[in-house]
């Protein structure tokens, strides 16, 4: 799935092929039905949940002219709908979500100020 996006992000001819027939462009890539669906829609939230690196996903969202704040919200919605990130760098230590991150960082900062 990430290989598909890597190729798409850097190849203008491949981008044209994807735009003309999204599912046909996926031929030759080892993708599950869920992944094909997410790539064809595109479902940014599901792609993030499935483990697509944000650097790749960010370029894909820009390609689809998704505004920055919408891109962030779609990822948040994906986590809310599907659960924590399944694979990849964000799952290495367990993606805990925006609120949990903010809470922990706040506690860390308070502890450092108090020390």
């Amino acid at each position: 799935m990430q290989k598909f996006l890597f190729e798409l992000n850097r190849n203008a001819d491949f981008q044209s092929r994807y735009l003309s027939d999204r599912r046909d462009a996926m031929n030759g890539f080892d993708l599950s039905d869920e992944e094909r669906h997410a790539l064809a829609e595109p479902d940014i939230g599901l792609l993030f949940h499935l483990g697509v690196n944000g650097q790749i996903l960010m370029h894909f969202a820009a390609f689809h002219e998704i505004e920055w704040q919408d891109y962030l919200q779609q990822m948040r919605d994906g986590i809310a709908a599907h659960g924590p990130v399944r694979e990849g760098v964000y799952a290495v230590t367990g993606y805990e979500g925006v609120d949990a991150h903010s809470s922990r960082l706040s506690k860390t900062s308070d502890a450092e100020k108090g020390s």
């Binding site: 993030f48 944000g54 990822m75 925006v98 860390t108």
Partner: peptide
């Protein structure tokens, strides 16, 4: 920084 993720914009200044 947490680039290109839902946490984008969060910065740990300390």
């Amino acid at each position: 920084h947490w680039p290109a993720t839902p946490d984008s914009g969060k910065i740990n200044e300390v």
